[in-house]
């Protein structure tokens, strides 16, 4: 990096801002108070959910067809996952193989004849990921990058199954932001935090919606109750 140039530009930008607003207070408390006050307005400035209970609201949202290319189901426990996956594969006439995220919770399940390790670089694959959170407002699941979570797992497959623990379904995006700031306070912010609300879509050719632009065409959310 050209440090001299960089510092000069930095200086120029800050000086220009100060020159444009010379009387602005730099009292941190005032700034933080103002910033907090604005957030307090969210309560009155966000959409109504489709149910009071967050998991129910999320399910209603998906079932109402408001989350592009996404379906969902609720299962009692993790042990039910292989069965649900089989049903999903059958529904779309897919071969008995999928890439299951490399987390013990999922890997240790009894997958029977299913092959759970496929090369994601190929197209037409099925992926299965463990979501950290769900968000009812937007019908989203949230993934965090980690040694066990390759971000590409959520983007390369044509079909994606996301598993969300029921207890981790939040009402609003604001609730997730709060959690993100707690994670940050612990110094544990992951490289990527992805809120995924539907599938990879485009309307770039004559305004027609096509799913599966680069990533998933179909997505299925499985909510696990006992987690």
């Amino acid at each position: 990096m050209d440090n001299k140039r960089n510092n000069e530009s930095r200086e120029r930008i800050f000086n220009a801002i100060k020159a444009a607003a010379p009387t602005v207070s730099m009292d941190l408390d005032i700034i933080q108070k103002e910033a907090q006050d604005i957030l307090a307005e969210s309560e009155f400035a966000r959409p109504k959910l489709l149910a009071e209970d967050a998991p129910e609201a999320l399910v209603n949202r998906i079932n109402a067809g408001l989350v592009i290319g996404t379906s969902c189901e609720i299962v009692a426990s993790l042990e039910d996952l292989p069965h649900s996956v089989n049903q999903f594969l059958n529904k779309y006439s897919l071969p008995p193989e999928l890439k299951v995220q490399n987390v013990p919770k999922l890997q240790s399940l009894n997958w029977e004849s299913l092959s759970i390790d496929v090369d994601l670089q190929k197209d037409n694959t099925v992926g299965m990921c463990w979501a950290e959170y769900g968000v009812a407002e937007t019908g989203s699941f949230v993934v965090h990058s980690s040694p066990e979570m390759p971000i590409l797992l959520n983007f390369l497959p044509l079909y994606l199954i996301a598993v969300i623990p029921k207890s981790k379904i939040l009402h609003y995006m604001d609730d997730y932001a709060l959690i993100a700031s707690e994670i940050a306070n612990r110094g544990e912010t992951p490289r990527n935090m992805c809120l995924i609300s539907g599938v990879s879509g485009t309307t770039d050719i004559e305004g027609v919606l096509v799913q599966g632009a680069h990533g998933p065409e179909i997505s299925h959310i499985i909510i696990v109750e006992d987690q």
């Binding site: 990058s145 935090m193 809120l195 539907g198």
Partner: peptide, 13 residues
């Protein structure tokens, strides 16, 4: 809401 909202926090851990 847009399908993909991602926060990028620096290089890989």
């Amino acid at each position: 809401i847009t399908q993909y909202i991602t926060f990028h926090n620096g290089p890989k851990r």
